[in-house]
Simulated scan of single mutants.
Amino acid sequence: MSAKNKTLCAVGLMSGTSMDGVDAAILYTNGETIERHGPSLTMPYTDGLRSDIQKAVEAAANLPAITSDNEFINEVADNITDFHSDAVFELESMLGAGRDQIDIIGFHGHTVTHRPERGWTWQIGDGGRLAGNTGISVVADMRTNDMLHGGEGAPIVPIYHSALLKKNLKHKTIAVLNIGGVANVTWVKFDETGELIDIVAFDTGPGNALLDDWMLAHTGKAIDFNGETAATGLKHEEIIMGLMASPYFDEKPPKTLDRNDFNMQSARGLSLEDGAATLTSFVVESVVAAQSHFPSTPDVWYICGGGRHNTTLMRRLRRHLPALVEPVESLGWRGDALEAEAFAFLAVRSLYGLPLSLPKTTGCEMPVTGGVLHKTRKRYARR
């Protein structure tokens, strides 16, 4: 058996655009197949750190390019990195063994701005600092190489989606919809033998971001728990139609969005309940519109990300999509750990020089690997 087929114990770390905290998960994988899953956890950000991340996002949006000279953003990056370190230590305690069991960490950092039209995407967090804190080698900066090869830099989770689906294949044509701050979809088609024959991925539109911002501005809490507020409001079709008039929805994939490409101001003047109902329905309409970019209609939609916890959103998706709509837990997946697992998977792929992105998922010229390795003195304990 070649070294490339060896299984590694990898930690994946993800801080999503919802800015609610760090998801961390352990995955045992050779970068092509998943042997088994280890412990996972979510560590919510403190109110202070979440506020600082929001300010960093706002600051980055007003800068003309990525820079290492902004002292405030650098400070937030260090604080985010240290918070991720704490998540790794918590995972180690759950593992019930020393850190020598862990071979590699996949570190996404936190996206403060994403501008593929300018040829850059910016995730803050210091992979070298994380490696130094934990004593474990780290793969970070997994998007830049894709952009250097003509890609959008996102989404890069689809390869993990396809690997998971192949392990537990119930349908041939499948859509996996991730509703985070921004929503993205992976459409896949398998042949009779279970081999992947086609894959398409792109951002469908805003996910939880607008609704979270609306709720935070009006209630002080960045969540519509179970969609209860939206369920009692009336959606305003003229606002939804105005939002859907954005040329983004007609653009052919691959395509991606920044969290701030849409904002809640379109619902300004509405009641709390009507604003929540309108913004929730906008998410649904953008997902419905995404179907026009699929090569064929999926047999089933599997929903992951925080949006799957929103009962009202899930009910409306089931009403408007012409296929079965289920949370990813129906496949036995860990919905809250899924993106963290993906970055563990991608870290191992990066070590082995395997592609992290494909032309039909990001628009890159060819399948490309990526990531920057920050080594420690620890050797990979390959199994």
Rank of each mutant, 00 (worst) to 15 (best):
N30G: 05
T311S: 12
M147Y: 06
S266D: 13
P295V: 03
L257R: 07
L373V: 06
G98E: 14
N184F: 12
M94C: 07
P355Y: 04
F249V: 02
T81G: 01
D261W: 00
H84I: 01
N226V: 01
R382C: 14
F225L: 13
T256P: 06
S281E: 15
D23N: 02
L346G: 07
E326Y: 07
L165N: 10
L41T: 03
S85W: 03
N178V: 03
N70M: 04
E71A: 08
S330H: 13
G153T: 11
P327D: 08
R259Y: 11
T186N: 14
F225P: 10
M264T: 03
W301M: 11
T219M: 05
E58C: 11
A24H: 05
T376G: 07
A65S: 11
F190K: 04
A344C: 02
N133V: 01
R36P: 11
N70C: 02
G132F: 06
A217E: 13
A97I: 15
K4R: 11
R259F: 13
K378V: 04
H149D: 08
G125H: 07
A289L: 07
P158R: 12
R315E: 15
G227W: 03
P253W: 10
I80Y: 06
E273G: 07
G207I: 12
G181E: 09
V22T: 08
F202Y: 12
G38C: 07
G48Q: 03
A87G: 03
G135H: 01
V88N: 01
G307E: 10
L279N: 03
T376N: 06
A175W: 10
G150T: 09
K189C: 14
P254E: 14
I174Y: 00
D100E: 15
E329Q: 10
L338C: 01
I197K: 14
L210D: 04
A323R: 00
R129C: 06
I303P: 01
G48I: 02
V368T: 15
E251Y: 08
R118C: 14
A231H: 09
D274W: 13
A163K: 07
L27I: 01
I159R: 09
M314A: 05
A60E: 12
R316C: 07
I240L: 10
A131K: 01
R115V: 07
T229W: 04
P254W: 14
I303H: 06
